[in-house]
């Protein structure tokens, strides 16, 4: 900066840039962790002090909870990574010339994938593919594709066509325009889809227990079958907290990868 005299106060400029992450967003970014910590703290305090019978104690043992949570997280992360690997390239392809006509068809199929009851999808796949982790992953991946696919398509279509033409007109190849102009500009929309998918998958991962693929859903299932409300509620609560954490991570990621200047 050469002449600082005429420069607007740097704080003002920074504030203008940051205003993109608006007030609501900031509130959620700061509020969610607090809420999660408070509720989780409450549950831990209850777990430490409550008078539990044999079954409850075994189901709510710390290492059991840890193992189930880890399984749940692993299901979510693996399914989401697969969703990204499939939906983003598919979305890109469906916005390229020549393929764009197929977009409504593919989105329609993805819509069906999501509209089908998740538990039905999981069980049907299990009958077909067997009762294990990867079957659950296939089902959840199909379930989570829609939001990412749709947002990738919408995000790319939302990029100002004159910018794309400007890029081509300046001598960037189609691939360069895609990587350097279209995708960065579509990132905020795509990331919103990724967050939606993450939250969806965390939720449906509770059904994994029905096909022996683990996850915190086991607590709910045991709670119901053995009439242990404490186990049932603990399972529900922990899944909800995990969903909140995942949502929060998604938001952090969204803010972090959003290109500056937008």
């Amino acid at each position: 900066m050469t002449d600082t005299a005429a420069q607007p106060a740097p704080t003002g400029r920074a504030a203008r840039l940051r205003s993109s992450a608006n007030r609501e967003q900031l509130l959620l970014l700061a509020g969610i962790p607090v809420l999660v910590l408070v509720v989780l703290g409450g549950w831990v305090a209850w777990r430490l002090t409550a008078d539990l019978d044999d079954i409850e104690a075994r189901q709510l043992a710390w290492d059991a909870i840890g193992r189930l949570t880890w399984q749940h997280v692993r299901l979510t992360v693996v399914a989401t990574v697969l969703v990204l690997l499939i939906a983003v390239p598919l979305g890109i392809m469906l916005t390229r010339r020549g393929f764009s006509r197929a977009a409504p068809l593919v989105v329609g199929v993805a819509n069906i994938g999501q509209a089908a009851p998740a538990i039905g999808l999981v069980v049907l796949f299990a009958i077909w593919l067997g009762f294990d982790f990867w079957t659950a992953i296939v089902a959840f991946t199909l379930y989570g594709i829609l939001p990412v696919l749709r947002n990738t398509i919408v995000g790319l279509q939302g990029v100002d066509a004159t910018l794309v033409e400007a890029g081509r007109g300046m001598g960037m190849s189609a691939a360069e325009v895609l990587w350097r102009i279209e995708l960065p500009l579509a990132v905020p929309v795509i990331m919103a889809g990724v967050r939606t998918a993450l939250v969806l998958v965390v939720g449906v991962a509770s059904f994994a227990t029905f096909i022996d693929a683990g996850g915190l859903g086991a607590l709910i299932q045991t709670g119901i079958t053995l009439f242990r409300t404490s186990v049932l509620v603990s399972g529900g609560l922990l899944i909800a907290l995990l969903a909140l954490v995942v949502d929060w991570l998604g938001r952090v990621l969204e803010t972090a990868v959003r290109p500056k200047g937008l």
Partner: peptide, 22 residues
């Protein structure tokens, strides 16, 4: 075609600057 365009200046209405680049 890309090589050709790199040696032809192109100026568009409103500047059409890429918003995510300085």
């Amino acid at each position: 075609v890309d090589e050709l365009r790199r040696h032809i200046g192109y100026v568009i209405q409103g500047g059409s600057l890429f918003p995510h680049m300085t």
